[in-house]
Design a protein around this nucleic acid. Structure first.
Lengths: 159, 159
DNA sequence: CGATAATAGCTGCCGAAGCAGTTATTGCTG
DNA sequence: CAGCAATAACTGCTTCGGCAGCTATTATCG
């Protein structure tokens, strides 16, 4: 961008990408958590299961990074999911420090129950969007995420 | 949308609006929190101050709703901000149950220090965006938020 | 106008997240 | 290959968010 989009003097929260993303995120939680709770899952537990299922993160380390979750907290969360028989932990053979998290049949079954409800909700939220608009939203969000990752990789020092 | 965008059988986390919004939100926090911490603010404290400054929420009730924060937790957070002299609480005269939250001069000063840093970061993240792309992202995010609010207002029952 | 319901904010309690430190394993460097 | 740094997962402690209950005030409805 040749010129900066925002300026400190005129910055207003309502038109800030950050604010809008936070607000959208909060509303998504408000909508999905009650639904998931009815099936005995917190949103974080659901997020862990889905991340494993779709290969976004296959071990605790990546789950922490991708879900922005504390390492200690994740250990205990996996303890729960494991004791409920939804996931299994296996020590990796290539790197014996690491652990591989797998969905059990029960874990996959739980997701098969819950995913349609989630999908319905999201579709319902998108009911006034054209197909092209959703595509564009996804593209821009991905671009935003890449930009953020780039910034963070740059070390977090002042630009 | 005449046809549903997502389908349970083919649903993949990576292309889900929900996932992308959550990821963008998490990365934004990763980027902003260290910056704010250097100035003695948590992100939530910053969000409260900004919400009051920009008239998004002027009392604890609206702050809870807009920031999706627990009422009890917010009371204690406001206690802190008040004891540090960044905000003031005044009982409303129209409704004596309610409280009006105001920024003090010190609160405004703190924001004047911090806002430019936040703005720089956001601009830096948006550096590969055209002006039109940011406009479109803001429009779509606002539309998404409206859709979510509509769903929630509809009562949260199954669609 | 009186009684009951609803609302705003606060408090206590509990569970989950964040932080620091530990152990086991691997990578790096001389 | 020896020694030290880095990494992955886990544990204990602290802090913060979520929940239920309480008080004061306002709205509702007979």
């Amino acid at each position: 961008m040749s010129k900066q989009y925002y300026h400190a003097e005129t910055y207003d929260t309502r038109s800030s990408v950050g604010y809008l993303v936070k607000r959208a995120h909060g509303l998504a939680l408000d909508m999905l958590e009650p639904e998931l709770a009815r099936h005995g899952l917190t949103f974080t537990q659901y997020a862990v299961l889905m991340s494993v299922r779709d290969g976004i993160a296959l071990n605790p380390k990546d789950l922490c990074i991708q879900l922005r979750h504390d390492s200690g907290a994740l250990t205990r969360l996996l303890d729960q999911l494991e004791s409920r028989g939804l996931v299994e932990r296996h020590r990796s053979v290539e790197d014996r420090r690491a652990i591989e998290v797998h969905l059990t049949a029960a874990g996959e079954e739980a997701l098969r129950t819950v995913i349609p409800l989630v999908v319905n909700r999201i579709n319902s939220v998108l009911k006034d969007f054209s197909h092209a608009e959703v595509d564009e939203l996804l593209r821009l969000l991905n671009k935003l995420i890449l930009g953020w990752q780039g910034e963070l990789a740059a070390g977090g020092q002042q630009s």
